[in-house]
Nucleic acid binder design. Structure first.
Lengths: 338, 338
DNA sequence: TTGTATGCGTTATCAT
DNA sequence: ATGATAACGCATACAA
């Protein structure tokens, strides 16, 4: 490393003040762009700053101002999701754009182990952020209750049951599911089944409810098969069982795109053509949707808007307004699988 | 919101001290787990802490200790790639695990606009982090030079041309690409094309260079097609164009697995069998590789190790050791696509 | 083992 | 318009 990188004591406001022959107060005013500072003083301070290489110490500033102008975004996802779900990137970007416009710094904190959980809690508690967005699919998340106890402005993206009653943003799974199933029915399907998952979460429950509403009187319990998780395997196995029960079915609503991908594979193995023989629709508009052949018709979640809305919820609380739960609109993306 | 969430003034060490009937010094010692504190005092302090609800103010602590025990990780990616690139998630997790073990908090800062770039630079300058990891900086990235000028311990993941001479970790994209293309050629392919991406980064440049070296005298510019990003769409479109130019090609090197997946889809749509008619190889060994049918032969990139190594480089500098550039090994994973 | 006093670098209040 | 001074909350060297 060359000499320019050797670390020497950082210049303080005092150094600038004496270099400029002015007081700390004046220097501070210049640095913060306040009024009541003469052009000459401003000049002198600016060149002194350049001369001594002054940069403001944020810790000191945060201490006296009692705020950090930073918002934490806590990512607590299983590895597989962090790797593949494009939604999380969009949420991040959405939150960032809102916070950036409000001149807040978004700092993302990831939780991978229990140790992380503790450290992140400490970080939040320490006053290094003025608020937090929590994105987490997990139920009864310890960090979530920790955040609640801190009493700092916070908002969830999604709303796993068992989490503290903090404001959250989400989508209306019931009407979204209903919309895509109605679209499926509109293609002329007569016997539509569902592979339902995660009925212990509201997303799972609500998607089933939407399905039930859409099919109406044609609803039959044995056209629904349930699995605990939104997985490819659930789709593959569930489809096999449904075909055994109802070889004549001509439509399937899978609770997620991954599930749909599994179901499609089983259908094709069993010689059913998609969409000619059986139409299939999914949910999420994740990368699975494009990797299927034919590509999946599905429900698109406005991930970036979720991030934006969550950030707005936090900002509102900081400003003392109270934050309301916000439900966002989804849209049907119609491709080739139905 | 109910009453427990109303914010009141945070308790300080003084509050604890008076509640416990002891001095601030003793309280501080207890909080920091230092020796020379009697069991009785410890008890008294602990219950006082619980009573007044004390949590330490990190800004104050950081100010006096002149360190933050946090490391910034700067993500500077185009929208579409953020988190859809599985490598980023792995790098994040890898860096996090190393820093977590060393009791440092990883804070991720994303740069999406010029405004972000400025704000992140301010954040780093302010002393809110003790070091930084910069991932996928692009050529002549302003934040990269800013970090260098700050003189804080830092390391790059990857090494775009034109960036400051800071330590970095990377893989040898040239020889990795060369290795897999040679393996492809060894299957008897005579006319091998490449879908190249991201030529504004070293990874893109080097993979192309590796390809060129491997094919040697058989290299022809029109067998290479270029795209700005490593995407499925680039693969699909690029393959279509290559087939138009050279209907008789029998091998393809895609610059990433996502690109290869897109290319494979196009090949199959055009009635080419993989690997019988055309052999295809990718790069990354991401989840795309396993979901393709047939599964992709590819280069395994140790993304988590890159994150770990970069974190270690930063930690080493903090400890005053000097950090050396580290190149990590890649390996060819041979499956069914070629 | 405990208490006291000083300083960390800013901002903000109040004079001037 | 500028300067002096008092916080902000904590850690720590030193005194007791």
């Amino acid at each position: 490393m060359d000499s320019t990188r050797t670390r020497r004591r950082r210049a303080t406001i005092n150094d600038v003040a004496s270099a400029a022959g002015l007081s700390r107060g004046t220097v501070s005013r210049v640095v913060n762009g306040e009024k009541y500072v003469s052009p000459e003083a401003k000049m002198a301070v600016e060149s002194a700053i350049a001369k001594v290489g002054y940069v403001r110490n944020s810790a000191a500033r945060n201490l006296v101002r009692q705020e950090s102008r930073a918002i934490g975004l806590i990512i607590h996802e299983p590895h597989s999701l962090l790797f593949e779900d494009p939604n999380i990137g969009s949420i991040l970007l959405g939150a960032n754009s809102v916070l950036s416009a409000a001149d807040y710094q978004l700092v993302s904190l990831i939780i991978d182990t229990a140790r992380d959980s503790q450290r992140v809690a400490d970080y939040l508690r320490g006053g290094l952020v003025d608020g937090a967005v929590i994105i987490s699919a997990r139920t009864a998340d310890p960090i979530a209750t920790a955040v609640r106890n801190l009493g700092i402005p916070a908002a969830f993206v999604g709303h796993p049951p068992g989490t503290p009653d903090l404001p959250y943003v989400g989508i209306d799974n019931v009407s979204a599911a209903r919309a895509i199933v109605e679209r499926l029915l509109a293609t002329g399907r007569k016997k539509v089944a569902m592979i339902a998952c995660a009925l212990d979460r509201d997303s799972g429950q609500d998607r089933l409810e939407g399905f039930r509403t859409a099919v109406g009187a044609a609803f039959r319990p044995d056209l629904v098969i349930e699995f605990p998780l939104y997985t490819y395997a659930a789709g593959a196995d569930g489809m096999a069982e449904l075909l055994r029960r109802h070889p004549d079915l001509d439509g399937v609503f899978a609770a997620s795109d991954a599930v749909a991908a599994g179901a499609m594979a089983t259908l094709q193995e069993h010689g059913r053509r998609v969409p000619e023989d059986v139409g299939i629709v999914g949910f999420d508009d994740s990368s699975w949707a494009l990797r299927c052949k034919p590509q999946l018709s599905t429900v698109k979640q406005p991930a970036d808007l979720l991030g934006r809305a969550a950030a707005e919820l936090v900002l509102a609380q900081i400003e003392g307004k109270d934050a309301e739960v916000r439900m966002l609109e989804t849209s049907v993306v119609w491709r080739e699988s139905a």
